[in-house]
């Protein structure tokens, strides 16, 4: 029997996307300037209470992004990078695209959270194209964010829909940036990228170390 068929039905409940977002939010201290990518990362903002002053940046030139407005209060001129309607918090500002990316590329953002297809245990991230010959590849701001922010955290499902680990020894997809990721939040656990590889910070309740490793391509290291 091969490794895949040996895996028993999970006796644990993986963290929901909302829970993953909440775990990231818990780790963001007041005062940080933060860019959230499209997808699960966007949900992080919902879990940062407004009285903890975290300043969200959107790469189309919005600093101090606030929550989505009720439909009747939509400002059609105010969107985020995902082209969703947003609000501007008190103290927020608008800048043009070069200044907005200057904030990113100049290393002024404390944190960027992105989704990913794969993260390697040296910090490589692949999140923009699933093949070298992608028809009409779309990169947007991902490479700027991955290379430019002071910290890059990834939030993603631990495995693909067809059961492959997204925490890999080497990315198979084209890279977004090499050696950029500092931490990974998945539905199975939280992992730091360290010089020796992935170090496990926490595991979803009910999942053993061995079962976590069995679901992970890259070797995992556990704190003693």
């Amino acid at each position: 029997m091969d490794a895949a068929t040996e895996l028993k039905p999970p006796a644990f409940q993986p963290w929901s996307r909302d829970k993953m977002a909440a775990l990231v939010a818990d780790d963001i201290p007041e005062g940080w300037y933060v860019n959230l990518g499209i997808g699960i990362p966007t949900m992080v903002a919902n879990h940062v209470p407004l009285d903890r002053e975290v300043i969200f940046h959107s790469e189309n030139g919005v600093l101090g992004m606030g929550p989505a407005p009720p439909t009747e209060e939509i400002n059609p001129w105010l969107i985020n990078a995902g082209k969703q309607y947003i609000t501007l918090r008190k103290g927020g500002s608008y800048v043009h695209h070069a200044d907005s990316f200057g904030m990113i590329r100049g290393g002024h953002l404390d944190l960027c959270c992105l989704g990913a297809f794969e993260v390697a245990d040296n910090g490589d991230i692949a999140n923009w194209a699933t093949s070298e010959n992608d028809t009409a590849p779309a990169v947007g701001g991902a490479m700027d964010l991955a290379a430019g922010a002071k910290r890059l955290w990834v939030i993603m499902e631990h495995m693909t829909k067809d059961g492959r680990s997204k925490m890999v020894q080497k990315c198979t997809y084209p890279l977004t940036a090499p050696r950029a990721v500092k931490r990974v939040y998945t539905n199975f656990g939280i992992f730091d990228v360290t010089p020796r590889g992935f170090e496990v910070r926490s595991i979803v309740p009910g999942l053993s170390r061995e079962d976590l490793q069995a679901r992970t391509d890259a070797p995992l290291h556990f704190p003693e």
């Binding site: 695209h97 070069a98 990316f101 590329r105 701001g141 490479m143 700027d144």
Partner: peptide
């Protein structure tokens, strides 16, 4: 023809 450019690089090239 398509030339894909990272968004910040496009902004910086224009600037």
């Amino acid at each position: 023809e398509l030339e894909i450019t990272p968004q910040g690089t496009l902004a910086q090239r224009i600037q």
